[in-house]
Design a protein around this nucleic acid. Structure first.
Length: 571
DNA sequence: GCCGTTTTCGGCCCGACTGTTTTCAGTCG
C-alpha cells in the first residue's frame, strides 16, 4: 500500500471520529499522521520493514499497529468497523464551509440528512432553521456554503494567485493609513497551490483600509466586513481575507497568520514549556501577563531562542529543531540564479527567436540560458529533425559570437522513447552543450517500466538533466508512475541532475523531492520551460519551491558561473 | 492517539467571529 492510500484512510478515520464527537486530540493525532504520510520522502513500508515506525514523532503504539495491519493485509478492521457506524455521505458534508462535525451530527440525527443533495433539499424547504441552536441566518449561511463549495473548484495555482495578491498589496499599500502590509498564509509560504489569499495590514485606521479593500475592482462578493477582518470573493472565485492589526503586533500577527498550523502549534508548545504564551498580539509571560515581544517576526522567534525561520520552511518538517540547533539551511535566493536552463525558441514550439530570448535573459541579469527545443519525435511541438538541429547549433554559435557577457547554450529537450532509448543519436547529443531528457509519451507505463526507462536515459553519458521528472500537471494530470527514490539514487550514481521545472503547472520536482535530492547529494537544475520570453518570469516560483525543499545555493546547478557550469556539464 | 530533566496519567495552541443565546457553542485559521 502506498503512503497516499494509507493517508486517505486515516483522513477518513479523523473525519468520522470528529463527527462521532470523539476526543479532539485523538482526531488531531490522525490529522498529524495524514500530514506525515503525505510528505514522507520514502514509502512507509520501508520504514516499517526497518522496524522504525515508532521513531516517527507522532506515531505511537496505536498508529504503528494500524499501519502494520494496513501494510500486511491491505485492510484495517478498526476502519471497517467505523465505516459501519457512520454513513459515508456525512464526511462529504464536512467540506462545506460553515459546517463542522457538530452540525453534521445534528443534521443526521434530527433530519436524517446524510449527503449534500439531501442537505440542499432541506435548505430549500427551510427545515434547518427550527433545529436547536439554528436560525434563519445559519440556514442562509449553509445555503451559501453549499454554493461556495460548488463554485470553488479546488485550490488556485501559486503562479496565478501570487500576481493577483501583489496587485492587491500594491493598491492597499499605497494608502496613507497603511503602516505595513504583507502577504500571509500559504501564499507567503509559497505552497504550489493556495486555498485563499491572506493579507495582513498594520494600521490604526482599519475602517478606511477595509472600505478600500471591499471596493477593489474585481470584487464579486463581500463575505464579511469587520474592524479587524474582512473577506471578499474576487473573479475566478478566489477568496481574499484581509486582517488589520495594531503596528505593535505586526510581527506576532504575521508569524501567526503565516502558519502553517502545525508549525504554530509546535511553537506554542515550546512557549508553554517556558511559561510563555504566543498569540497574534505578541509573546507574553503567562504569570505576569507581560508582553515580551511581537513587533517583528524575528523577535518572536528570538524570544524562543530560535533563529529566524523563513516562511517557506514553516511546515513542521524539522525546521523548528533545526532552528534550535542553529542548523537551518541558508536558502537559495533568486539573485543566486545565473541563468535559465530550460527555454524554448520558435525553432520548435516557442514563440520568440533565440536572439529575443537571449536579450530578455540578459535583462534579467542572467549570464547564460539553455535553449532546449524539442526533439524530432515530438511532432506536435515542432520537434527538430537532425538536420534542423545542426542548423540550430550553427545559429547559436553565430549568436554567441555577437553577444558579450552572455552565452546561449545549445541544448535540446530530447524525448525518452518508451524503451528508454533517446530521440537523437549520441553523435548529435555530444555536440550539444546541454542535454535534457524528458518523457512526453507512454504516460501509462507501470512503475517498474517507467522508472527503468528514465534510468536508462540517465545512463547515457551525454544526458545531463532529466526534465520535469514526475510529469505531473497540477489540476490536469497525475504524475506518471515513477519511483522518485530510485531516480534520485540513480541520478547520484550516474552523475545526472534533476530538473526543478518552474512552470506553475509543473513545479516538478516538488518541494519534498527537492529535499530528497539534496539529501542524496544530487544537484537540481532550475528551468522555467518558457515558451516565450515573458515566461522566464516564472523563475521565482521555482526558487520558492527549491527553498521549500531546503535547497541552498550549492544545491542548484545554475547558481554556478558559466565557467563552472560548463566544467560540471563536461565532467 | 501521543507523550514525558516538572508527568506513564493527565495534559494536549489560541483567539476571533457569528449566531444563537442571556453565557456559550460551533467553526475557522
Amino acid at each position: 500500500m502506498r503512503n497516499s492510500e494509507i493517508a486517505q484512510i486515516f483522513q477518513d478515520i479523523a473525519d468520522i471520529l470528529e463527527i462521532k464527537g470523539e476526543n479532539p486530540f485523538r482526531v488531531r493525532a490522525y490529522h498529524k499522521i495524514v500530514r506525515i504520510l503525505e510528505t514522507l520522502p520514502e514509502e512507509i513500508e520501508k520504514v516499517c520493514q526497518r522496524g522504525e515506525l515508532r521513531n516517527i514523532p507522532g506515531v505511537g503504539e496505536g498508529l504503528a499497529k494500524k499501519i502494520e495491519e494496513l501494510l500486511a493485509t491491505g485492510k484495517l478492521a478498526y476502519y471497517e468497523d467505523l465505516k459501519k457506524q457512520v454513513p459515508s455521505g456525512l464526511v462529504e458534508l464536512l467540506a462545506i464551509p460553515e459546517i463542522g462535525p457538530k452540525t453534521v451530527s445534528l443534521l443526521y440525527k434530527e433530519l436524517g440528512i446524510n449527503n449534500v443533495r439531501e442537505l440542499e433539499k432541506a435548505v430549500k424547504e427551510h427545515r434547518l432553521k427550527d433545529l436547536p441552536g439554528m436560525g434563519p441566518k445559519t440556514e442562509e449561511n449553509i445555503r451559501r456554503g453549499i454554493e461556495l463549495l460548488k463554485k470553488k473548484q479546488g485550490r488556485m495555482l501559486l503562479g496565478r494567485a501570487y500576481p493577483l495578491a501583489q496587485s492587491i498589496i500594491e493598491r492597499l499599500g499605497g494608502l496613507p493609513e497603511v503602516d505595513r502590509i504583507s502577504l500571509a498564509g500559504s501564499l507567503r509560504r509559497m505552497r504550489e497551490t493556495i486555498g485563499d489569499i491572506d493579507i495582513l495590514v498594520a494600521s490604526r485606521k482599519p475602517r478606511r483600509v477595509m472600505q478600500v479593500f471591499t471596493e477593489l475592482p474585481g470584487v464579486t462578493e463581500i463575505l464579511s466586513i469587520g474592524e479587524t477582518k474582512s473577506s471578499i470573493i474576487m473573479e475566478e472565485n478566489l477568496q481574499v481575507d484581509v486582517r488589520v492589526v495594531e503596528p505593535d503586533s505586526f510581527g506576532a500577527a504575521l508569524q501567526y497568520f503565516t502558519g502553517s498550523k502545525p508549525h504554530n502549534i509546535k511553537l506554542r508548545e515550546i512557549a508553554n514549556k517556558r511559561g510563555l504564551k504566543i498569540n497574534e498580539y505578541g509573546v507574553f509571560e503567562i504569570k505576569s501577563g507581560e508582553k515580551i515581544s511581537g513587533q517583528t517576526e524575528e523577535e518572536v522567534y528570538a524570544t524562543l531562542d530560535l533563529s529566524y525561520i523563513p516562511p517557506e520552511l514553516r511546515e513542521e518538517r524539522g525546521e523548528i529543531e533545526a532552528a534550535q540547533e542553529g542548523k537551518l539551511p541558508h536558502l537559495v535566493e533568486l539573485r543566486d540564479i545565473q541563468g535559465d536552463l530550460h527555454v524554448h525558441s520558435r525553432w520548435s514550439d516557442g514563440s520568440d527567436s533565440i536572439r529575443e530570448l537571449a536579450e530578455a535573459a540578459g535583462k534579467r541579469g542572467y549570464r547564460y540560458m539553455a535553449v532546449c527545443d524539442h526533439s524530432q519525435s515530438l511532432k506536435v511541438a515542432g520537434g527538430l529533425s537532425v538536420d534542423e538541429r545542426w542548423k540550430q547549433i550553427e545559429e547559436i554559435r553565430k549568436i554567441n559570437k555577437e553577444l558579450k557577457n552572455f552565452r546561449v547554450l545549445a541544448g535540446a529537450e530530447v524525448d525518452i522513447h518508451s524503451d528508454g532509448s533517446l530521440d537523437y543519436e549520441d553523435e548529435l547529443l555530444k555536440e550539444l552543450d546541454i542535454v535534457i531528457a524528458a518523457i512526453h509519451s507512454g504516460f501509462k507505463q507501470n512503475r517498474e517500466i517507467m522508472t527503468g526507462r528514465v534510468v536508462r536515459a540517465m545512463e547515457n553519458r551525454f544526458v545531463h538533466i532529466i526534465a520535469h521528472p514526475t510529469g505531473r500537471l497540477l489540476h490536469e494530470r497525475e504524475p506518471y508512475q515513477v519511483d522518485v527514490e530510485t531516480l534520485v539514487r540513480e541520478a547520484r550514481r550516474t552523475g545526472t541532475f534533476l530538473e526543478l521545472n518552474a512552470f506553475p503547472e509543473r513545479l516538478d520536482l516538488n518541494d519534498i523531492h527537492c529535499r530528497q535530492a539534496k539529501e542524496a547529494g544530487v544537484m537540481v537544475a532550475l528551468g522555467t520551460d518558457a515558451h516565450h520570453q515573458g515566461q522566464m518570469e516564472m523563475m521565482p516560483y521555482g526558487v520558492a519551491t527549491a527553498r521549500r525543499g531546503w535547497l541552498e545555493k550549492k544545491d542548484i546547478l545554475n547558481t554556478l558561473s558559466l565557467k563552472d557550469l560548463l566544467k560540471r556539464l563536461k565532467g
